[in-house]
Nucleic acid binder design. Structure first.
Length: 507
DNA sequence: AAAAAAG
């Protein structure tokens, strides 16, 4: 059997790999490292979770042992589609490069230029970048690309999705033709193949299929739901509380606004939850990801920024609050669980309007996904719509009578003092076992416990969205939440809730 | 029906 010591890596690299506890390379590592060390171009077709990052980091470290960096002239350049991914690659360089004295510069957007400038001035061996910030540095004349010996283009298919290809082409033009290029992509659509043909010279093609492993270790289920957000939230909470072995989970939404809404809802319900999407400021993103990795936060509500590439080990569950519009995203999302041979579970909430996308997913993965509790035709009657709930209650007296009825109906609202009243196991599942005990493993008992995570509410929370256009909707949303989510009545109004909050948006 | 990335 092949071990790392058979691949031709330097002693410094090998000892770091051993210290990290690895002896056997993954298929992509075994296939890509030897030709990379011989300065061959690589076309690597592999998803995340296959050990792809180490397959370029380790040979690069070995090759970098010859020579030294000069100011403003990086020797190697790695392009990543997202900031988190770039940061992760940087961590890999720290880990496996601990026996080297290499200067590594992480050039990503959303943070200040100062420290990045200093590192470039000092001379960087390795540049790890998102395309926009790299071009920014180039335009400011801080960077000479003529010394780059190795170019890595990671997640090329995702770069394509995100419209980065023109940027990538501009960057590639700045780098000498004699460079070595390592090119990675999870899929090979024609555009990517064309790109690879242009960028690579006589590449070694290394392909790793990961499909069989996800298919066997991840339990996938569709969960029928009505399409209203408050109903989906109730279904989701119920689903989460019924999981017996939920260590941690990522919950995907299609839109950033929905990430923020669902995050608020879950945290108001006392879940240990964080949020991650691209409109949050960079320090919140970093902190959030770190506390999820550390286990300080159990649930992470995220946009597709977290769908690909992020190295979060041991995610036991993935929940798709929204069915992804592009079936490929489904594969990437559920690829967050069941990694490295572990078992995982992936649940996707599907409403009538999503059937087209759900069908597309089954077609892509060439597999029927079972429904958890019957398909859409077996769905119980929808909850009362919020308008009828409100008119029943009438006027401004929103706290009594009608409100309790609401709770019974949609098992969502509850007084802050009682935790258990809203946990019901009807409707959604055939499992009639009481869920309270399990729920407590998921939900902190005391409100105080949730504070540290959601605390610094300014730092951990999704950044406020300052679009003036949203002001219009804010009142409507507040009222909506109060009526249908669970939320206590808006704080500070007492019984004097302004009348407009109760009538706004009726049209 | 979206998200991501440069400000």
């Amino acid at each position: 059997m092949t071990t790392f010591s058979d691949l031709g890596l330097s002693q410094k690299v090998l000892s770091a790999v051993t210290d990290a506890g690895y002896t056997i390379p993954t298929p992509i590592q075994a296939g890509a490292i030897p030709p990379a060390l011989q300065r061959r171009d690589i076309l690597g077709i592999a998803q995340t979770g296959t050990g792809k990052t180490a397959s370029f980091v380790l040979p690069m470290l070995t090759l970098l042992e010859k020579g030294r960096a000069r100011a403003r002239m990086p020797r190697t350049l790695i392009l990543e589609p997202t900031r988190e991914l770039a940061a992760q690659v940087a961590e890999n360089f720290e880990k496996y490069g601990k026996n080297h004295k290499l200067n590594i510069a992480l050039l990503i957007g959303g943070v200040s230029f100062d420290e990045q400038d200093r590192k470039l001035e000092r001379g960087a061996d390795v540049l790890i970048c998102t395309p926009g910030r790299l071009l920014d540095h180039c335009e400011r004349g801080k960077l000479l690309m003529t010394g780059v010996e190795i170019l890595v283009i990671d997640e090329a298919d995702r770069m394509l999705d995100m419209g980065f290809i023109p940027d990538i082409e501009r960057i590639a033009k700045l780098i000498p033709f004699t460079r070595q290029t390592l090119f990675f992509s999870a899929t090979m659509p024609p555009e990517i193949q064309k790109l690879a043909d242009r960028f690579l010279q006589n590449p070694e093609r290394v392909e790793v299929s990961v499909r069989s492993s996800t298919a066997t270790t991840v339990t996938q289920r569709f969960v029928a739901t009505h399409s209203k957000d408050y109903e989906k939230r109730a279904v989701l909470r119920d689903l989460i509380q019924k999981q017996e072995e939920l260590k941690n989970a990522i919950i995907f939404c299609n839109r950033k606004l929905d990430v923020a809404d669902l995050f608020r809802s879950l945290s108001r319900h006392g879940f240990s939850v964080g949020a991650l999407h691209g409109d949050m400021d960079q320090s919140s993103r970093t902190k959030m990801l770190a506390s999820f990795k550390d286990g300080n936060i159990q649930l992470l509500v995220a946009s597709d920024v977290a769908a690909r590439g992020l190295d979060i080990p041991d995610v036991s569950h993935v929940f798709n609050f929204d069915v992804p519009i592009h079936a490929e995203d489904y594969v990437h999302r559920i690829g967050r669980t069941g990694r490295a041979g572990r078992s995982g579970a992936a649940f996707t909430l599907v409403s009538k309007r999503d059937t087209k996308f759900a069908d597309a997913i089954e077609k892509l993965i060439d597999k029927k996904i079972e429904w958890l509790n019957g398909d859409l035709s077996a769905l119980p009657a929808p909850m009362e719509s919020h308008d009828s709930g409100r008119s029943e209650r009438g006027g401004r007296d929103g706290k009594r009578g009608g409100r309790r009825n609401d709770r019974d109906r949609d098992h969502a609202p509850r007084p802050v003092s009682s935790h258990k009243s809203d946990i019901k196991s009807d409707d959604i599942s055939t499992d009639q076992e009481p869920v309270t005990a399990k729920a407590e493993s998921v939900r902190p008992e005391r409100k105080a416990d949730t504070k540290p995570q959601n605390a610094g509410r300014h730092s951990n929370r999704p950044a406020p969205q300052p679009h003036p256009a949203n002001d219009d909707n804010r009142d409507r949303r507040n009222r909506y939440r109060r009526d249908h989510d669970d939320g206590p009545t808006p704080i500070g109004f007492g019984d004097d809730i302004p009348a407009f909050m109760l009538i706004a948006g009726k049209a």
